[in-house]
Amino acid sequence: MPEILLREALKRGLEEALESDPRVFMMGEDIGEYGGAYAVTDGFLKKFGPERIKDTPISEQAFLGAGIGAAAAGLRPIVEFMSISFTLVAFDQIVNMAANLRYMSGGQISVPMVIRAPTGAGVQLGATHSQSFETWLAEVPGMKVVCPSNPYDALGLMRSAIKDNNPVLVAEPALLYGAKGEVPDEYYEIEIGKADVTREGSDITLVSYGYGMRPVNDAADKLASRGVSAEVLDLRSLSPVDMDAIVASVQKTNRVVVVDNARRRGGVMAEIAADLQERASEWLDGPVMRVGSIDVPWPYNRGLEREVLVDADNVLTAVADGYGL
């Protein structure tokens, strides 16, 4: 199977949609002439023209809001944010408008819009550019949230997101744009709301998503070298989240560590941990262990930032603390 970068997988998904559906168009800061801050839309302006590849002013509220209006009128906008931290500027539009519009109108209006945003720390951008607000938006009813951890998932999830009739946030791990992976030429989609068991095991379940899959996979390798068989789940979607898959795995392994690349407090994994207490405590041999990045603003210094980020050792420590493995 051919190997491509995650950036190229996203690009393929976007390009296909622009080619096959005239209702699809893109908006964002410097996605046209400049080619996109992470080069995902490089060459699009030339290929699809300025009506479909729209450079916007630095007005996140206005262009995200315009995406909502265009979607409400039947188009299928794909709106790019340069950083998921910038979605904060447009949170009113995303939450109050995009996510609530269908419900408030009694089902009369839908918002088939994709919001793309690079997420996560690790490239020394400091506190305002390193956050992971997919965890906040995963709480909001009326929208969906996905986050790929590899090129195969990036393409499959992007295809599904563009076809979806709801607002869908595609959180793109900034550290993974250059990650390589196998992507088949044959068409496929990945269903939103389904987790992927990326590694079968019998002794402990490790759950994460996006960039968090790196420390989790490293930890699973290290556990394997010690004879501990870890089952690994990649959530792929944070909303809806596939609790059934997590519970099923826990019923098999009786042990679980949930790992959030975002800050530990108040994230998606906190919610999953709470759900597991209710749904799977009788299957568990110990506490639901939760790992996340340290609850501080993101520091700039490389050493400090690395320390705040979750790594495989953090995961292994939780495995040992919770279950003595």
Partner: peptide, 8 residues
């Protein structure tokens, strides 16, 4: 902006 988007 909703109105701007409808107009768009």
């Amino acid at each position: 902006p909703l109105a701007a988007g409808l107009a768009l």
